[in-house]
Amino acid sequence: MAKRQKPVFLPPAQDLRLKAVNLKKGYPLKLEPAELRRLESVIERAADALHKETAEKLRLLRAALNDVAKGDRADQAMRAIRSLSLDIKGMGGMFKYPLLTAFAKSLNDFTNSIDYPTPVQLDIIAAQIDALYVVLAKHLQGSGGRTERALLDALRQATARHKGSRARF
């Protein structure tokens, strides 16, 4: 058996520390609550823009779904659905819509293993996009009530039953 090469350890690079870390100027490693609130205001101010951006991405999701249904460059349209759902997954919780993140994750996980969806898979994708629309249109902030959780569970069960077999990576 070939002998495994011994790891070489190199000390931490100090250039950036020397340049930027000091005892007088700048921000502490652990932020004070007031500093943290000031930074959080950046995200709060972006909430309207995030709402608009999500609405636009949902419109594009519907358009991509129509392309897939028509068989119009289905693989490209599926790529678009994966990319858009990943974007919404990342944005939802940023502006107090964790349900958007949950539904978008469900859609993204499901479509990650599908290039050419069957009619049943198409229906499931459409249902997930509809759910995203409802969350945004009805301003369902927070984790949702019993109905939303039941819907999410139902979609999870449907996606588990009908998921594709393509490897994720």
């Binding site: 090469q5 790891p7 070489v8 520390r17 490693l29």
Partner: peptide, 15 residues
């Protein structure tokens, strides 16, 4: 971010 800047870790080179 602060950890990446102020608490750099040592590096390792293996195969």
């Amino acid at each position: 971010l602060a950890a990446a800047i102020a608490r750099p870790r040592r590096f390792v080179r293996v195969e």
